[in-house]
């Protein structure tokens, strides 16, 4: 069961807005995390991989077969959409059975039983899906995607709205799927989530494929960038001089209007040790140290420039 999804030179635009810009990637067996801030184009990529959106240019293929307008690919794909809506009037059992029957499985009842057991939802299978909590819905959606034992699993923001316990449970489940040799792709805007789970990470920022690699590589890219801080201290001018002398800062500027020091550290880890040492040696008291660019977006946009 070796299955590979490939995007080749894929762009997708909606009117004048470019959602995905010339992305080429290949997603093989194991767990891949699609990481990026909200609105970066993750869902657009997943929709194209799931056959619900044609690329404007380029090709999206599953083992060499085009995904768009090719319902046969769904024999190999299990899809967990981000939207919560399912057929609320069905019970959990009926909903998963519906999916099993639509796949034309030889024994849909047995497949349904197995899928519900995998996500540990047997206890609620006779209740209406409409009465499920968000986490329960996510699990029954997962069961519906697993019912035909697919080689590929596509999940759009599967951890959204889950409590920590449900999150752990789903992670454990996805790990098992990955270990089985399935191709699992999930999207998330939270680095820690992706890091804990994915052996391979693809970073998407503003529609572009910003980085690709294992989590160590991505983590290094994210921490090695210059970090910006705003500092106020008992003597900003003296601190600036001491920091420049030490050479660990890329730039320092005094903001006399707001009475703060703005600086850019060239290396995150060194600077974290350097700043307290330098200020102590110079006899300067630090009042406030604020990272100026710690939002995920700025971390990502640094990656795009890199």
């Amino acid at each position: 069961m070796m299955t590979t999804l490939t995007l080749k030179d894929v762009s997708r635009w909606f009117g004048n807005v470019v959602a995905v810009n010339d992305v080429t990637m290949s997603i093989g067996p194991g767990i891949t995390g699609l990481l990026g801030p909200n609105g970066a184009g993750k869902s657009t990529v997943i929709n194209m991989l799931g056959g619900f959106l044609p690329p404007s240019t380029g090709s999206v293929e599953l083992d060499g077969a085009a995904v768009w307008k090719n319902p046969d690919v769904y024999r190999a794909i299990g899809l967990v959409p981000e939207r919560e809506a399912v057929y609320d009037f069905l019970t959990g059992w009926e909903f998963v059975l519906l999916n099993a029957e639509l796949h034309g499985l030889p024994d849909p009842g047995e497949a349904t039983r197995r899928a519900l057991a995998t996500v540990e939802m047997e206890y609620a299978q006779q209740r209406k899906v409409g009465d499920y909590s968000k986490g329960m819905k996510q699990r029954v959606k997962m069961a519906s995607a697993l019912v035909h034992d697919p080689a590929v699993l596509l999940l759009d923001e599967p951890f959204n709205g889950m409590d920590p316990r449900q999150r752990l449970h789903l992670m454990e489940l996805l790990r098992r799927m990955g270990a089985d040799g399935r191709t699992v792709l999930f999207s998330s805007h939270i680095l820690e989530e992706v890091e804990q789970l994915a052996s391979q990470i693809e970073v998407i920022v503003a529609g572009r494929h910003a980085a690709s690699g294992d989590y160590r590589e991505i983590r290094r890219l994210m921490t090695d960038r210059p970090h910006q801080y705003t500092i106020s201290s008992s003597d900003d001018r003296a601190l600036a001089a001491a920091l420049i002398a030490d050479g660990c800062t890329a730039s320092v500027s005094l903001d006399s209007k707001e009475q703060v020091l703005r600086l850019e550290a060239s290396q995150f880890l060194n600077f974290a040790e350097l700043l307290p040492r330098v200020s102590r040696d110079a006899g300067i008291r630090l009042y406030q140290v604020t990272p100026a660019d710690e939002s995920l977006e700025s971390v990502f946009s640094y990656l795009v420039q890199a």
Partner: peptide, 10 residues
């Protein structure tokens, strides 16, 4: 969006 469960089938 629930139509996706019908459409994502062979």
């Amino acid at each position: 969006g629930s139509v996706v469960y019908l459409l994502a089938k062979p």
